[in-house]
Amino acid sequence: MVARAAREIAPGMVVNLGIGLPTQVVNHLVSDFPVCLHTENGLTGIGPAKGYDTADRNLIDAGGAYVSTVPGSACFDSATSFAIVRSGRLDLTMLGAFEVSATGDLANWKIPGKFSPGAGGGIELAQKARRVVVLTSHTDRAGNPKLKQACALPLTARGCVERIFTDMAVIDVTPQGFGLVETAEGISVAEVAEATGAPLILPEAAVPTF
């Protein structure tokens, strides 16, 4: 699923990879792939991750992981960093999710009474990136669907999600609702529909696998 999501990145894009699963997407890009990775804490041109022994104490990503620069990197302050996000210079962001609705609403920052650490830069990424895709497990740990007709949790942003990559499927948010694009190898269309909390629109042709 992470490898499939990596194919979403087109040459020349400015991309922000959210904390968690999305961070792993970079491992599936070839080393000379022409892309500019952005992190909220003030860096464009993120280079390979660094281990404890080789890390620069002044170079982290927004998740606190140690990263490096590449030729052409730029460092800047937090206002500049979010000017990039809000002004439409960010072509793509990949975010995690607690819930996604059939109209593309995203909930990924707060579970009242259980988890409320603050949204950081997530709201601006979700609301302002030119394209927002989500990487998530198809269901939560209890097996409940994370793709639902409407979100029950507090929203990060409304109507922002265009595509969802899960361990079971690739699903687009269409004007008619969730549209099945691909299934994971070994997963049937019926299994995806069963694990999805809203109607699934099927393509007329056979559904490709990834």
């Binding site: 003030g42 860096l43 620069d56 990503d61 460092c75 302050d77």
Partner: peptide
């Protein structure tokens, strides 16, 4: 002058 990602909110 700041370096790396240590700039963040400091100049603001």
């Amino acid at each position: 002058a700041y370096v790396g990602t240590a700039q963040n909110f400091n100049p603001l």
